[in-house]
Design a protein around this nucleic acid. Structure first.
Lengths: 329, 329
DNA sequence: CTGAAAGCGCTTACAG
DNA sequence: CTGAAAGCGCTTACAG
């Protein structure tokens, strides 16, 4: 592998000058520049990034932490982030926490060991007090998930409003026994949706029944399981608000298998507005999240910080959510 | 940020000894080791990866090139790869080519510039002759897609068999006018599926009609478009073999909208056995691909090569495909 | 068991 | 416009 030294030797110039050519500095004699360029071509020289990283103290790499890449919500988010990153000449390291605190922390170590310039937390398994120590090693921002105690830039949606809209819609459809199946309750995003649910119920003077609250539901299988538990109940809910379209799809799928009519026997609201929400039969009424915008915006904010060495200041961008009505309600 | 030098200074030992402790070398005096460990703790020392990369000429990072992360097939593949990578202490750089040759080549540059130790091509937009030059910079293997001219390790499925099985199944169901909607025909994987289609047709003495062959179909929207074109035909096919469950789902969705009965008016076979194949109504008959195994195996092969500096030898692992019958046929 | 020295490949202030 | 020198932070032969 040719190095700068080889080019210098071949051209009879100094490594300094070669470096200047590589980095497009002005003030290099045109003839010499050409000579260097030719030598680079001939020896098929390519600058060694490890050396550049060490010297420049930058990696041009951003880590994004998600909790489950097979969730279409996250793959769309990552897709949008990757597009911006590539455009700006950055690499994206994909870090899957698989909902585990330990893995999330392991991934944050990348910042400590200078393997990445910044970390975007699209999922947040740990408390702020456990994340905070990492922020002294580089910019950390959150996107999608958040922690109200956190002093970091965050791009997020108004999840409480989302929960409220979803449940209010069900109430307007005449339901009074409404269940709720979200993620783990230790997650603030989940709790906020739940608060929206409670608020809508209270506003309508409806009781929140503990046995109607399911937690830690994420995938299709979880949705099926939720339905099975509902099915086994004496006193069943007539509607359910799910914390994701995958869960909603699982509920609907299992319900249909048991000859339930949707929405007559069970109305279902999902979350995210994933492609599946439109494809499944009946189409899923859901809360649309601006995945593409969130991913794009988060990456822009991150790159602005690392490229311009901008101070990390605490800011929040809160995006509105939207109800999309289909046939499941 | 504390460096090895700081630890050396603080403990009165040499950087060499400190390095030995960090790297768990034997033959370090127990008292001194303890002293170093304490100093590291106190100064919250973390080794700088850029320096290690430069010195060690390794990055502990693998790039995986896919063509569309929002395709569940790829997100499942990447998920499996990431699990192994994390387990072995490697990072995964996600590279999306968006079906573009240029982007794929740009991502391969990562190998040249020593940003990654190896590249897994899960998608293959370029011809082998354009990929080959990169192989001198480090191991390149393919997983899922392949090129019969390529001299690189490949984990792949017998796509021709897949196409054959799918179409034979449709023929057995009594169909004679069978369409086909795959990816771009410049892709060998797509051509092989098409060959399987042709073989099954010929075997049954059925003509392959040019207007029944749709190409460059990938997502749900493409599937809808394919159906619209079928719908507009004078002489319509009665069955279609799609090159992915997303395309199949799009076809079915649009067909239902136009009051087509599936499979009576149009039978549909998909590919991959994605979660959606089971959720949609009717369930999609499809060809199951061992996504998890492929991803796992590809990463294992790659890590074996980089970790043990194994020579890159040309090997192919060809996995069988399986027909999963549901209600769409 | 330990350390001085060299070097991985680059870039950048400094001096000219 | 150009180059000698220093240094980013680490590891590893080599010598003891």
């Amino acid at each position: 592998m040719a190095t700068i030294k080889d080019i210098a030797l071949k051209t009879g110039l100094s490594p300094t000058t070669v470096s200047r050519v590589i980095n497009n500095h002005p003030y290099v004699d045109k003839t010499k520049r050409k000579k260097v360029l030719e030598a680079m071509e001939e020896l098929s020289y390519v600058p060694n990034s490890s050396a550049r990283r060490l010297r420049g103290q930058r990696t041009n790499t951003i880590a994004v932490i998600i909790s489950r890449i097979v969730n279409p919500f996250f793959s769309h988010l990552v897709d949008a982030m990757g597009e911006i990153a590539t455009e700006e000449g950055y690499q994206l390291v994909l870090c899957d926490s698989r909902l585990e605190k330990k893995r999330e922390l392991q991934h944050l170590e990348l910042l400590k060991t200078k393997q990445v310039d910044g970390v975007i937390l699209a999922s947040l398994q740990n408390k702020w007090e456990d994340i905070e120590p990492y922020t002294r090693y580089g910019p950390v921002i959150s996107c999608n998930e958040y922690d109200s105690k956190a002093q970091m830039p965050s791009i997020l949606c108004d999840q409480k409003q989302g929960g409220y809209m979803a449940v209010k819609h069900l109430i307007e459809r005449g339901h009074t026994k409404i269940a709720c199946a979200g993620g783990a309750l230790r997650i603030e995003l989940t709790r906020d949706r739940y608060r929206g649910y409670e608020e809508a119920m209270m506003e309508a003077d409806l009781p929140v029944q503990e046995e109607f609250v399911f937690s830690s539901s994420y995938g299709i299988e979880d949705g099926k399981e939720v339905f099975r538990r509902i099915y086994a109940m004496e006193n069943r809910p007539t509607a359910i608000f799910a914390g994701g379209d995958e869960v909603a799809a699982g509920i609907i799928s299992e319900a249909k298998k048991m000859k339930f009519r949707i929405p007559e026997d069970l109305a279902v609201v999902g979350f995210d507005n994933q492609p599946i929400a439109e494809l499944i039969d009946p189409g899923i009424t859901t809360i649309d999240q601006p995945m593409k915008y969130m991913g794009t915006r988060a990456m822009q904010v991150m790159l602005d910080m690392v490229a311009n060495n901008r101070e990390v200041t605490y800011t929040r961008e809160i995006l509105p959510l939207e109800l999309v009505i289909r046939e499941s309600t």
